[in-house]
Computed example of a mutant assay.
Amino acid sequence: MKLLPTTPLEQVEQRALSLFKSTFPESGHPQIIAHAPGRVNLIGEHTDYNDGFVLPLALEMQTVIVGSRNGKDTCRVASEAFEGLVSFKPNKDLKPGDPLWSNYIKGVVVNFLRSGYEVPAFDAVVVSEVPVGGGVSSSASLEVAIATFIEAIGNYHLEPSKKALFGQAAEHEFANMPCGIMDQLISECAIQDCALLIDCRSLAFEPVEVKDPDTCILVCNSNIKHQLSGSEYPLRKQQCKDALTVLQSLDSKITSLRDANLEQLNQVKDNMSEVAYRRARHVISENDRTLEAAECLRKNKYETAGKLMNESHFSLKNDYEVSCKELDLLVDLASSVPGVYGSRMTGGGFGGCTVTLLKRSSLSSLLEKFEKEYEKHTGIAATAFVTRPGSGAGYKKLQ
């Protein structure tokens, strides 16, 4: 299996500049280039919307937006990945519609307006290297990139958490996805060569350096597309709320699952459904694993961090039931290769990617194993790329 190349940001920007000039030839030279990365989560899955802890890092893959004010009353946006031009008036009455990718942009615009910011009409193009439907937050990358672009053309200076919250609100209202805050926050706030340990209640975060030259992070795409705006994701969120309600009868100070421990959960196990119990057991144990994994990475204890990643996958597979046979196969294959510390599904689940922490010297053996076994058992060719922790969103003014 050949690794997917990582396109340098400068090359993605050049593609975006060319697309802008061909799409809006009458608009002259663009004013702003904004960018925001996708992300991979090392550990801490389905904890963010339960006020818990997560440990993501930004990918080196970015979404780039190039554009300018157009002096009119209508925004016009084009995407390299989709045909056609999207037009809309920037006002609070914007509604979701087709094409679906434009809803992430419209949702961010609406949230700027609701918070009292003016959004000038603009012409813009979108070019992205972040894989769509792979569980590496292509949507959050787009949301944060457009928020950064609006911040730049409006000459605003927003708190990073505010931009992240605008993106999350767009996801909730315009994509019907009740996600947590992790994806947008890491895309906005990422630090080069560091994962971020994020407290999803306070939005505080701490950098966790991950730059050992002998260790690498492999993201492998099962190439099974997932659709999380269906019933599965909201159902699990409700099941967590059901468990929380029972736990609050034990202790009113428990305001979210992150406040509970496994001993408390077991005390009230008989008062909730077996499914709600397992969902809560995953979230509570996953918070513990995430905090421990961050400490292990700080001390270069990669074997222990990898063991926690394996446990995370087992919990996601059995207690939270968001894995699938293709993801399980990739994790099993990775676990059979000497030098692999740990592997797990990453993202919402039901397809998408796995993330594997391993010795760099074992990378070729792992890729060979994936290539030999995965397609044979699934009929699908997986794709993979190596990443290091990248930096967060930013922009530059061209004129």
Rank of each mutant, 00 (worst) to 15 (best):
G135L: 07
R388T: 02
E274I: 00
V40A: 00
D332M: 07
L185N: 03
Q238S: 05
G116P: 14
L247S: 08
H46P: 08
E371C: 06
I150L: 15
E83F: 10
E303T: 11
V64R: 06
V275Q: 08
R279Y: 05
E292D: 11
K307H: 05
R69F: 13
A190W: 07
F122A: 15
S138V: 02
C216L: 08
C220K: 00
N91I: 14
A393K: 08
G44W: 03
S365L: 10
R15S: 10
K307D: 14
R289A: 03
A81G: 05
Y156V: 12
D328T: 01
G230P: 04
L398K: 12
K106S: 10
T74D: 11
F82W: 10
D270A: 02
L358R: 01
F53P: 03
A124K: 06
K162D: 15
A243D: 06
M61E: 03
N41G: 03
E151W: 04
F24R: 06
V86A: 05
V77Q: 01
G167Y: 05
L358C: 09
V12T: 15
T47S: 08
A305S: 02
V12P: 00
L85D: 08
L197I: 05
C179W: 03
P90V: 10
D123L: 09
T47H: 07
D183G: 07
S249F: 09
I65N: 08
V283H: 00
D251I: 12
S141V: 01
P96C: 12
S335Q: 09
F112Y: 14
G392N: 00
G342Y: 03
Q238P: 01
I32D: 03
N310Q: 12
S139R: 04
E83Y: 03
G71C: 13
A175G: 12
V340M: 00
E26D: 14
P389A: 12
A145R: 02
C179D: 09
S138W: 02
G230F: 12
A124S: 13
R114D: 15
P207H: 08
P30A: 15
C75S: 13
V275I: 09
L113M: 14
H172K: 10
K253Y: 10
Y49R: 04
D214P: 02
I150V: 15
E232L: 09
L218N: 06
S222V: 07
Q184V: 06
L85S: 12
K299M: 13
G306N: 04
H157K: 14
L59Y: 01
D51A: 10
D199Y: 10
E326Q: 03
G349I: 02
A293L: 02
F88K: 09
E129Y: 04
M61T: 02
E209F: 07
L330I: 04
P99N: 13
G71F: 09
S231H: 14
V110L: 14
E188W: 01
A195N: 03
Y374E: 00
